[in-house]
């Protein structure tokens, strides 16, 4: 099975405090720690496990700048066979539709049976996989937490409300967005990264993909970010101050009043 996994380089929210720039145009990106979108790790792991079972190859692809190469190498260290970087100044400022059109152009250059994306990335939009499938006219299923291969078909589970699982049958080729928890992504050590450090990663631009200038990028985006802002919230939490001892004493008092402690 030829599998393509779409991966995105995102600021690691567990490692970073996200602060908004003074003028609201962006977040402070200078000191951010970046990593692979959490969901994409599960997608890569799933692709590797499928390949190991039925044969074929796993390719990882990202739309990004040259720095995004590092996440391709990381996924290759996990076991992906190949990486492709889609980079061009013309891609900058693309909205979800733009990203999906760029990925579609690359997919049509290859011969894939299965495309995996993460369920969502840092923008929380959960859009790229579904758009891509619609553009390709391939069937789609989102939030997939189980995949069984059955010839030219897959039996898949979708995670729905309440943690229930919606079972479906879907024909290949198809696009699936992967939900966390489907597997346990393998650990990547420094040694693994070193092994793939010198592997050539091809980079394709708008010209290579036959993408008309102006059909992607900021000019084509129908959704634009106007600004970042700090919302006026309700009262917010009463913050307990002082030493840890003092906070604990105050908390115990509150818990007793609210029925949290007998």
């Amino acid at each position: 099975m030829e599998i393509l996994v779409c991966v995105k380089r995102v600021p690691d929210t567990a490692e970073n405090e996200i602060t908004i720039k003074g003028d609201g145009t962006d977040i402070q990106r200078d000191d951010l720690v970046y990593s692979v979108n959490e969901w994409d790790n599960y997608a890569t792991e799933e692709a590797i496990q499928i390949r190991d079972k039925v044969g074929g190859a796993v390719t990882v692809v990202t739309v990004g700048d040259s720095e995004a190469e590092e996440i391709l190498r990381r996924q290759m260290a996990m076991g992906a066979d190949k990486g492709i970087l889609l980079a061009d100044d013309a891609f900058e400022g693309s909205d979800g539709r733009g990203i999906a059109s760029i990925l579609k152009a690359e997919i049509l250059k290859g011969k894939y049976d299965l495309i995996l994306t993460g369920a969502q990335a840092d923008d929380g939009a959960a859009q790229v996989g579904g758009m891509l499938a619609a553009m390709l006219d391939w069937p789609y299923a989102s939030l997939v937490n189980k995949i069984e291969i059955d010839g030219k078909k897959l039996k898949i589970g979708r995670e729905i409300e309440g943690g229930n699982q919606e079972m479906n049958e879907i024909e290949l080729p198809c696009v699936l967005s992967i939900q966390t928890g489907i597997n346990e992504p393998r650990y990547v050590g420094i040694r693994g990264i070193r092994k793939v450090a010198s592997v050539e990663i091809p980079s394709h631009g708008a010209g290579d993909l036959g993408i008309a200038a102006g059909s992607v990028g900021a000019a084509a985006a129908r959704v634009k970010r106007a600004d970042y802002f700090t919302p006026v919230m309700g009262k917010g939490a009463e913050m307990l101050e002082g030493s840890m001892e003092e906070k604990i004493d105050k908390l115990i008092e509150l818990l007793k009043a609210k029925g949290g402690l007998k």
Partner: peptide, 22 residues
């Protein structure tokens, strides 16, 4: 919700409409 995430992005493509989520 889990249905909207499944159905809506592709609908925007089929309708050639803009898409904004969540």
């Amino acid at each position: 919700d889990t249905f909207g995430m499944d159905m809506a992005p592709g609908l925007s493509i089929k309708l050639d409409a803009a898409y904004a989520a969540d």
